[in-house]
Each structure stands twice: as C-alpha cells, then as structure tokens.
C-alpha cells in the first residue's frame, strides 16, 4: 500500500548565483497512515520548507510529491487549493485562528470551504470540539481562549472534513509544558486511533518521546 504522503528526491533552492541557498536538498521521505512522524533539525535546516512542500503550499525546485498515490507536484497552481482543502489539515505554531469567529465557527469555516452545508458544519464542528474537550468553549472567540484551548481548536480545525494527512508546525512552541503534552497526546491519538498520517516539525522533547519515527534534517539534507 502506498504511503499517505511521499516526497521523492525533492529540493528547494532560493535565489540565484552568489545568493543561491539550498533549503532542502534531495530529500526522500514517506509518511504512513497511523504514523506520527517528527521532523527535527536545527534552525535553518529546512524543516519548514520541507513541511510547506509536503503541504503543497510551496513548490519544490525539483523532485516529486505524491499524496495517496497522486502526483501532486505536477498539478497546476490552480489545482493545488483543492488538494490542500481535501487531503490536508494544518496546525500552526501561532494557532492562526480567525479572531472574528468563535471556536466552533473557526472549524465551520474549513467545512464551508469544502461546501458542507451550515447545519452539518455546525454538527461536525461541535463533534470535533468534543473530541478535543472544548464543548463548553465552543462559543468563545480566540481572544477569550487560553493558549492550549487555541491549539486544541486549531487541531480540531485541522481535522474538519476528515483529511487523511495532518501537518503540524511547532504545535507546542507557544504552550506551557503540561498543555504541550496534551497536544502531543492528541496528535498521537489522531495517528493511532483515527488512522491519520501526522507529520510534526518540532524541537520539543515531548514530541520526540511520543513520535513513531524521527526524520532528522541538517543543512537541508535528511541525515537520519
């Protein structure tokens, strides 16, 4: 069975001539279902560039990307939003919740993008908030939520529409240790119980302890 996400010999080069910087250098990496993959590396090692390419947000300079067997690196710019919308869920370091929307509405927004009707969107949003333990906070705006609650809302949002792949960028960086542990636990639960393919970029030892596999990057190269 093919992996949920496969990057094959991908590179990302910024600039030209003397300003040429190789952010990601010939990386091949597979992300399997039911797996929590941790991508680690020092600052500037290319982790975020790699994650952005895995998320079809950044185009690789060379190499190929497959999502559930489909070669998405060959798709046009106009087709990529559909891939992101249906196959991928994102969790960001700064949560990136919409300040004008309540916790529930932040989740509904993703479902509305996927053309799910209003009533069903609300039901799914409430179900997802229940999964992350935020039922009672559903009506609150991000400004009224704690850091951990914001990240749990963001996690619920990433799961809206049931994407097979979840990509998380430093999801515990802005959280205290206890809350960070809860979030990592939820991410692992997504992989093991919900069968998602989860890739996390992090420096956090808590993630390292719970990850099924670790990909170590250095100077854009995969070294382990």
């Amino acid at each position: 069975m093919e992996p949920a996400l496969l990057v094959k010999n991908i590179s990302k080069v910024y600039g030209r001539g003397e300003n040429r910087v190789v952010a990601v250098d010939s990386v091949t990496l597979a992300l399997e279902r039911r797996e929590l993959l941790l991508i680690m590396g020092p600052s500037g090692s290319g982790k975020t560039s790699l994650l952005s390419m895995m998320g079809c947000i950044l185009r690789p300079t060379s190499g190929e990307i497959y999502i559930e067997g489909r070669r998405v690196s060959a798709l046009s710019e106009a087709d990529l939003p559909d891939v992101r919308r249906h196959a991928l869920g994102f969790v960001f370091q700064a949560f990136n919740l919409f300040s004008a929307l309540t916790a529930a509405e932040n989740i509904e927004l993703v479902l509305r993008l996927k053309r799910v009707d209003k009533a069903r969107s609300r039901a799914i949003a409430m179900d997802l908030l229940a999964r992350v333990g935020l039922t009672k906070r559903a009506h609150l705006y991000p400004a009224d939520l704690s850091g951990g609650e914001k990240q749990r809302t963001a996690l619920a949002r990433a799961l809206a529409g049931d994407p097979p792949i979840v990509l998380a960028d430093e999801p515990t960086a802005n959280l205290d240790s206890k809350t960070g542990k809860e979030i990592v636990g939820l991410l692992k639960g997504l992989a093991e119980e919900s069968g998602k393919a989860v890739a996390v970029v992090s420096h956090d030892p808590k993630v390292e302890a719970l990850a099924h596999r670790i990909a170590l990057l250095e100077d854009g190269r995969l070294i382990a």
Partner: peptide, 18 residues
C-alpha cells in the same frame, strides 16, 4: 491586520477569488 488569517485561508485551500 488580518493578513495572517488570509494567509491561513490560502493554506487551508481557499482560492484567491474566494
């Protein structure tokens, strides 16, 4: 002020037109 939110919308699959 909402540039990050619009960026997030793009990342989660919204088209420019939307």
């Amino acid at each position: 002020e909402h540039l990050r939110e619009f960026g997030t919308l793009k990342a989660i699959g919204a088209r420019n037109g939307e």
